[in-house]
């Protein structure tokens, strides 16, 4: 518990600081020796929850009349399988790609859903456990650029793998230099540059899109909490009204962003299968 009330700025900055392996805010923009323990904890925890539910559903899956839980998982499964079938045309690739899409969707959905917990709930509990009122904790792994870029780079690696697998290494290199503008030697550098920009843009935008949405959503929850923190009638009512509206709207964002991430995963992998 804070002994003295923090200012608005301090409150926001505190909430946006990760609990990392150094114990204080990361100084450099990029520092590969630092680990964000909170992001890791919650993403792995939710990954385990994801797998727990999916494996439970998979083990209970029968060809008989499905129960509600099984039916729900099957609806999800069919949705992902249909999308995968429409975008990735190789049945062999789908054996891996479709499960990736399902995992990504459920996992990201759960990680995004951490936003629905009151912004102060877990940080306060953590502060009480550690006894340190300034203990940092961020509970939404997808509001951490490391989390989302980690996944989008994973998708990039899968794309590179399928590029080589489908077209052969020489075929892919050939494509890198001859597409999209044509096979003239003068165009080789332009093509290659274009391809590199494309891969970079795809991956960065893939991760940034999810991160940006969840980061902004989290920030707005904090601002709404600050409104309530003014401890006035206006602030209290404002907190309730704005908090409710934003939470309801955020349900859409949570599901939509998980869906978009999954769809883009499929689209990018599908593109890796197509020759220019």
């Amino acid at each position: 518990m804070a002994t003295e009330a923090p200012t608005s700025g301090e409150y926001i900055v505190h909430h946006l600081t990760h609990m990392n392996s150094t114990g204080h805010k990361q100084a450099a923009v990029i520092d590969w020796s630092v680990w964000n323990l909170d992001t890791l904890f919650f993403s792995i925890l939710l990954g385990v929850v994801t797998l727990f539910f999916l494996i439970r559903a998979a083990n209970k899956a029968t060809s008989g009349v499905p129960g509600r839980f099984q039916a729900a998982v099957e609806i999800l499964f069919e949705m992902v399988a249909d999308q995968a079938k429409g975008i990735v045309h190789s049945a062999e690739s789908r054996k891996f790609v479709a499960p990736v899409a399902l995992t990504v969707f459920v996992w990201i959905f759960l990680m995004n859903s951490m936003d629905f917990l009151p912004v102060d709930l877990l940080p306060r509990i953590w502060a009480a456990i550690t006894g340190d009122s300034h203990a940092y904790l961020r509970v939404v792994p997808t509001a951490d650029l490391n989390g989302t870029l980690g996944m989008s780079i994973g998708v990039l690696l899968i794309c590179l793998y399928y590029n080589v697998k489908i077209k052969g290494f020489s075929g892919w290199v050939h494509e890198l230099f001859t597409a999209p503008f044509g096979g003239h030697p003068l165009l080789y550098p332009v093509n290659f540059l274009m391809q590199m920009i494309e891969f970079l843009a795809k991956t960065i935008s893939h991760g940034m899109r999810l991160f940006g949405n969840m980061y902004a959503g989290e920030l707005i929850f904090m601002l709404i909490a600050l409104l309530g923190g003014t401890a006035t009638v206006f602030g209290f009512l404002g907190h309730i009204v704005a908090g409710s509206i934003w939470a309801v709207f955020h349900i859409l964002i949570v599901a939509l962003q998980a869906f978009i991430f999954m769809m883009l995963t499929l689209v990018y992998i599908g593109q890796a299968h197509e020759s220019h």
Binding site: V29, D31, L40, L51, A98, V100, L145, G150, G154, L157
Partner: peptide, 26 residues
């Protein structure tokens, strides 16, 4: 908004989850 080793860890977690799903769920 800082990048650090969490990114690598998340990348590994991503593949582990995908592999388990492919193996035991799908």
């Amino acid at each position: 908004m800082n990048l650090n080793a969490t990114l690598i860890a998340q990348l590994v977690v991503f593949f582990i989850l995908a592999w388990v799903t492919m193996k035991f769920v799908w």
